[in-house]
Amino acid sequence: MSHSSGRDWTVHPPFLYPDYKSTVYRAPSKPLIPLKHRLGELSGPVYGEEVVRLHDNDLTKNAAVNGEPLGQRIIVAGRVTDELGRPIPLTLIEIWQANAAGRYLHKTDQHPAPLDPNFFGGGRCLTDEEGYYKFYTIKPGAYPWGNHANAWRPNHIHFSLFGRNISNRLVTQMYFPGDPLLDFDPVFKSVPEAARHLLISRFNMDFTEEAFALGYEFNIVLRATPFE
């Protein structure tokens, strides 16, 4: 059975979404040209398990200098599958985020909230043989941005995934349940309404580690490979 599948534009945001002002001069204006893949091109980066070091998936430890980072310790975990529910094993997941005060380590982040000497905010891991992944981190804070008056980004963690080949490539953001800022955020709202819940993690008591960290579940679905 064939499961050819492209990017599903009923769930992905459009290139041009004027409420998010930066899209106006950066969105391609001409229609995309359909591309048929040939087998030789159904490939993409694959990494060996040895590239991941101890604590690369633990943002509470991977930059600790003289103590633990401030903030609510959390676990973010889930499974990466394709649209048919098949696990995607041993694929690289990279994440980056603001600290508990809503400040990025990035040099151009001018938000006058404190940096945390024990928090870097970047991490990575490979999914296991069954597609599962797990990060330890702290809950990121909300931060202001210049898109419109009194604009705030909801709490979020940036995710980057490769999947089986370059047609699977996904960069996205994970949000938290119940965040009142979601209703005001044009980046989140650029996603068609029926698909927005797919970006909100689920609080999962079973993922919580007693007396240590709260657990959030975020499952990620990548495209099935075209012409399989």
């Binding site: 990017r7 599903d8 769930v11 992905h12 945001p13 998010y20 599958t81 394709d82 649209e83 048919l84 529910g85 940036h158 980057s160 996904l170 960069v171 996205t172 953001q173 980046v187 989140f188 650029s190 996603v191 068609p192 698909a195 927005r196 797919l198 970006l199 990620i220 679905v221 990548l222 495209r223």
Partner: peptide, 9 residues
Amino acid sequence: LPQTPSQTV
């Protein structure tokens, strides 16, 4: 399963 939507980098 629905694809996880993209968001900006």
